[in-house]
Design a binder for these strands. Structure first.
Length: 498
RNA sequence: GGUUCCGUGGCCGAGUGGCUAGGCAGAGGUCUGCAAAACCUUUUACAGCAGUUCGAAUCUGCUCGGGACCUCCA
């Protein structure tokens, strides 16, 4: 097994991954802000880091995967403030803050299940860790790197940068930050524009507020991740992940806070996934081009020509390396849908293949070694900064081999029985366990299969009698329902759902 | 303005010096009652210009074009 290498954003270099504690990995990934519904862009980090998590498990590591829920602090429900001005009665019809975050947390969990993402080991909420955050802020003040003004607490970037490499992760120079940061609320309270809030005093209308040593308020955006990562993974842990857009200021601030509190840099390896774009532009609030996940699954968005299932989206994302941008497009999604279907059917064909019990040599030595090379290549690609795109390419190169064996264009004996078993094992391990793919039609019950078997049987009789009117009627009408019958070479009939 | 990344064939995308990426679409063929699927074969590339090199999509410079971050952001 080749050793795992990852591209560390902190050093901008590909490095051999060596965990702090042999055999164990601590990984923290920035989770969702549950003030609204997740969109396609949000799916990328959670699928990316799910695959990374799965691969670490595959390598035999015991992984503690922590992914937070940001349910506190700096947000309000979209559109709420404006409506409240219209009518105070509307307030009664609005959701409680915790009701709001519960609603979107549930929706987020539902989406994660749709994508077949494994659950993180710990999923801490910001609201559940106010105490830890306050303690951390107190420690930073005591260390002399934060100051309180009018009930708010700010981190002193200028002082920090005198002793620590502020800006290293995001490649920023502090002098520029001090000059170019633009006007923001509460700017006048800060000693320097680059300083960021650890704790904000809550204005009277703010919907979420907690008691603190500095008065009622709410935590700054960055402190929750530092507090929760420290609590569950320790002062220094192995991997910190998130979207590239979080590099600055979020992760840079996290590093600063944690470094002061814990006297060491928090994460050894920083991994960042790139963005999903629409017409070359990042999917996000500012461009008003987000497609919500529920809209993706249902096909209800002007940009969508059809609905796209969660496995299609997962496959679509995995076809690209996680550090590259990925451009949304109907053509690309449809290609992913068809490609995934083809891969999945080959996988099913492979699992149904009977492998001879006794050991056998390969009749086709060249093909046999080609297959083995392609399989071994998948380990190398995954270990080279999780190159799922190349893994999929190898899987696809094996598809014609599998289908040819199934259709008897290639004899089973062409491959040694060891190779066949390895092929089966690798396909299962990679497709299901590492890439986390599953049938888009998971959850069909046995009754439908029974009904289809009956129809196939009737059609078979009709065909035997050359009653093609009946046989085509069955096939055509099933096709209208999205069920595709396929006459196989050996006389059997298979079906797939579209 | 500062920092930084990218520009690959109809579409999406791998790929950091020489070896077929891959998927989808297109074309031809095999198979089939007809289809579909599958299988086989196959067309269209590396933004432009100059340079380094025996050799560049891959390195350097310039030009053009686009993006990201600098504010909430996955």
């Amino acid at each position: 097994m080749s050793e795992l290498k990852v591209l560390n954003s902190y050093t901008r270099q590909k490095e051999v991954f060596t965990p702090i504690t042999p055999g164990h990995v601590g990984m923290y990934v920035c989770g969702p802000t549950v003030s609204g519904e997740s969109h396609l862009g949000h799916a990328r980090p959670f699928i990316t880091f799910d695959v990374i998590y799965r691969y670490l498990l595959h390598l035999g590591y015991k992984v503690r995967y922590v992914r937070n829920i940001t349910d506190a602090g700096h947000f309000e429900e979209e559109g709420r403030a404006a409506e409240d001005k219209i009518s105070s009665k509307a307030v009664l019809e609005k959701l409680e803050p915790m009701e709001l975050v519960q609603k979107y947390t549930n929706l987020f969990h539902w989406a994660m299940l749709q994508f077949n993402n494994l659950e993180p080991s710990i999923e801490p909420t910001a609201t559940g860790h106010i105490v830890e955050q306050i303690e951390m802020i107190k420690a930073i003040i005591e260390a002399g790197y934060a100051y309180e003004v009018n009930g708010s607490v700010y981190f002193d970037i200028k002082k920090y940068s005198e002793n620590y490499p502020y800006g290293k992760l995001s490649g920023r120079v502090l002098d520029e930050q001090l000059e170019t940061s633009r006007e923001l609320e509460g700017q006048d309270e800060k000693r320097n524009k680059a300083d960021f809030a650890l704790w904000k005093a809550a204005p009277p209308e703010h919907i979420m507020r907690w008691v603190s040593p500095w008065g009622e308020g709410f935590p700054g955006w960055h402190i929750e991740c530092s507090a929760m990562a420290t609590k569950y993974l320790g002062g220094q842990f192995d991997i910190h992940g998130g979207g590239m857009d979080l590099q600055f200021p979020h992760h840079e601030s996290e590093i600063a806070q944690s470094t002061i509190c814990n006297k060491e840099t928090p994460a050894r390896y920083w991994l960042h996934n790139n963005m999903i774009t629409v017409n070359g532009k990042k999917m996000g609030k500012s461009y008003n081009n987000q497609i919500k996940l529920t809209e993706m699954f249902a096909g209800t968005h002007p940009l969508l020509e059809q609905a796209y299932g969660p496995m299609t989206i997962r496959f679509f994302i995995l076809q690209t390396h996680y550090r590259s941008t990925l451009d949304f497009g109907n053509e690309a999604l449809q290609a992913a849908e068809k490609g995934f279907k083809r891969l999945w059917e080959a996988y099913e064909n492979l699992q149904k293949l009977d492998v001879p019990e006794q050991d056998s040599n390969a009749a086709d030595e060249a093909l046999n070694s080609k297959v083995n090379d392609l399989l071994s290549g998948m380990d190398e690609f995954m270990s080279d900064d999780f190159n799922t795109a190349k893994v999929l390419a190898n899987l696809f190169e094996l598809v014609p081999v599998i289908n040819s064996i199934k259709d008897k264009h290639i004899a089973v004996s062409a491959l040694s029985n060891a190779t066949l078993n390895r092929l089966k094992k690798y396909f299962k391990e990679y497709i299901e366990n590492i890439l986390g793919l599953r049938s888009e039609n998971a959850g069909d019950n046995g009754r439908l299969d029974g009904v289809l078997d009956l129809l196939i049987d009737i059609r078979k009789d009709a065909r035997t009698k050359k009653d093609y009117a009946t046989s085509d009627k069955i096939r055509n009408q099933l096709q209208e329902l999205g069920i595709l019958l396929k006459d196989e070479k050996d006389g059997s009939v298979g079906y797939s759902f579209q």
